[in-house]
Nucleic acid binder design. Structure first.
Length: 576
DNA sequence: CTACAGTTGAAGCC
DNA sequence: GGCTTCAACTGTAG
């Protein structure tokens, strides 16, 4: 059976395997190293980590080229990600809940069957990845090691161990950038060594992304002798020791490249929809048919190539004519992904407040009880709680739903540290991606990127705007399903007789609100203003900053009583 | 230094 | 549904 790469065929000219030059430049930090010709060169390894796909996979493509006699496609199950942690707040490992682990297993099974259809297979090993890879490189006489460059700190450290070992052993290493549209290092270099901190400046620097590879394979080199190594078949989630999980509700979304390409095709079928897509206009309460493509988890694991996705979008834009643009368009969403990858790569301690140069230092409150209420969907605000339940069950919620609950936890209501919320999302989301998750928590908590802390999502009116009858709430919080429309967002205001009739007594069947939003949000706003002020006067601040702030303060005071200065109004004035 | 723009706020008005 | 006000942030281009 042939493995037809893109299930959707877009008018890109497939280049013959031999003539196509390397489509993806290796990271400047990791140029491919030449080793003296030896018999080892005929054995190649492709080490999968992210990039769980056949299409547009430069590491795989490079591995099978150049007279490769034996190809070893390897994935290592990393105990750091999989080891059961009974102390975690939900079943799974210390780093991930069951839904994302299952998504990974799906993706591995799909990759294995794709490889098998090409006469190969996935060699699944288990153990500490770096030392294990080093061992097999030697034991299997590998002459060429290929793996996708990964920008996360954990991966960089792991991969350096392997690269150092390989170089010292005369093994050629090829580590192309293919997870993102652009090479974050290139963008940072173009920007004078610093990561751009606004989307617009990022887009201006980025330019056009490289094209995806468009090779179709009919066959891959056979797998070589793996000696004494115990090769695993892809386990089922039940086999990984997470206890009795028979009662767990699992995400409706399944992993894998096949599913990614099917979903891509499905999403792109309606060209009008693609051309008119505007992210901020999506409906966060839509759950029967979500308002977005739901391709994020596939991008996270690399089941779908962002470059291939980008190319498909641009082909549609060309054919349709009029279309939306970044930041709101679908292609704009891929650029957001690259933006966060770039800043994350260029910012030490990106995932914490302390020691993070781009992060506001805010004295967040430590309150375990409120954190647990938020995490478990027990805040007493149905809109917030329904989102947290959907997150737990599906491993996915709409972008604006993420905004609602992240704002509520941090600067909007509870004033709890964004790192705590980040940890919960990292565990529960099937699309949780280190750079993007941390970036968005920095954003939503007004710690970086976004600073209009006085714009606070209402846990009552925000959802109501989209879903006045509360169908979303009724679905994910069945305890409230008989609450009349007029009370569904604020059930504590329902008269007792109404609560009784709805068989939902507030304070008994469903919690009272843990805070009063009007009071809490005002207090949060005050605390944010104070935190911002002390960031300016404090020692965290680079010098020269405070004079700027002082000037702005004076500017604001002078503005009192003077003509309106906001830009819209000024435009209007000049027109008159 | 200044002006401006910033993916996605809420509430009140017409 | 569109507009204004509310109170007022920041990084960046010029």
């Amino acid at each position: 059976m042939l493995f037809q790469i893109p299930a959707v065929r877009y008018p890109s000219t497939p280049s013959p395997p031999s003539s196509s030059s390397s489509c993806s430049s290796p990271s400047p930090r990791n140029p491919p190293r030449r080793s003296p010709r030896s018999r080892m060169e005929s054995n190649a390894m492709v080490w999968f980590r992210k990039g769980l796909r056949i299409h547009d996979n430069p590491a795989l493509d490079h591995a099978r080229r150049g007279g490769c006699a034996r190809l070893f496609p390897v994935f290592v199950l990393d105990p750091r990600y999989l080891e059961p942690d009974p102390t975690a707040f939900s079943p799974g490992s210390a780093r991930s809940g069951l839904n994302r682990i299952r998504f990974l297993l799906d993706s591995l099974a799909d990759l294995d069957s794709a490889l098998r259809s090409l006469g190969s297979r996935l060699l699944l090993l288990r153990g500490e990845p770096a030392p294990l890879i080093c061992r097999v490189l030697k034991d299997w006489n590998i002459g060429k090691l290929c793996f996708e460059f990964d920008t996360e700190p954990y991966s960089l450290a792991r991969d350096k161990q392997v690269s150092d070992f390989a170089s010292a052993s005369g093994i050629q290493v090829f580590s192309p950038v293919s997870h993102t549209l652009f090479n974050p290092a290139d963008i940072i270099e173009k920007n004078g060594g610093r990561a751009p901190l606004t989307y617009q400046s990022f887009v201006a620097l980025a330019g056009k992304p490289p094209e995806p590879l468009s090779v179709t394979y009919h066959e891959l080199p056979p797998v070589g002798d793996t000696g004494e190594y115990q090769l695993l078949s892809v386990p089922k989630i039940e086999e990984l020791g997470y206890g009795d999980i028979s009662q767990e509700e699992f995400s409706p979304f399944r992993g894998g490249e096949s599913e990614a390409l099917r979903r891509l095709k499905e999403s792109l079928k309606d060209k009008e929809w693609v051309a008119k897509f505007e992210k901020p206009k999506g409906d966060p309460s839509a759950f029967l048919k979500p308002a977005t493509t739901l391709l994020s988890p596939y991008l996270k694991f690399g089941c779908l190539s962002s470059r291939y996705f980008y190319q498909c979008l641009h082909d549609i834009y060309k054919s349709v004519g009029k279309h939306t643009s970044p930041p709101v368009s679908l292609a704009g969403q891929l650029l957001w992904r690259d933006f966060f990858y770039t800043v994350a790569f260029g910012t030490p301690n990106f995932d914490c407040m302390r020691g993070n140069k781009i992060c506001k230092q805010v004295p967040w409150r430590d309150d375990e009880e409120l954190l647990v209420a938020w995490r478990e969907g027990q805040t007493g605000y149905p809109w917030i709680d329904a989102i947290m339940i959907q997150l737990k069950k599906w491993g996915w919620v709409h972008h604006l739903a993420r905004h609602s609950v992240a704002c509520f936890l941090t600067r909007g209501d509870l004033f709890i540290h964004w790192e705590k919320g980040r940890d919960v999302f990292e565990r529960l989301l099937i699309d949780s991606d280190w750079a993007i998750n941390n970036g968005n928590w920095l954003w939503l908590s007004c710690s970086s990127f976004f600073y209009q802390y006085y714009r606070i999502y209402s846990p009552i009116s925000f959802g109501k705007k989209y879903d006045p009858n509360g169908n979303y709430i009724r679905h994910f919080l069945p305890v409230l399903k008989d609450m009349p429309n007029e009370y569904i967002y604020e059930p504590w205001t329902a008269p007792l007789s109404v609560q009784k009739k709805a068989r939902c007594i507030i304070g008994k069947d469903y919690p009272k609100p843990v805070v009063d939003h009007d009071i809490a949000s005002k207090e949060c706003r005050k605390k944010m203003a104070e935190a911002y002020a002390s960031n300016h006067s404090g020692e965290n601040v680079p010098s020269g900053r405070s004079s700027n702030v002082l000037r702005r303060k004076l500017q604001n005071e002078n503005r009192e009583g003077s003509p309106p200065t906001n830009s819209k109004q000024r435009k209007k004035h000049s027109l008159l």
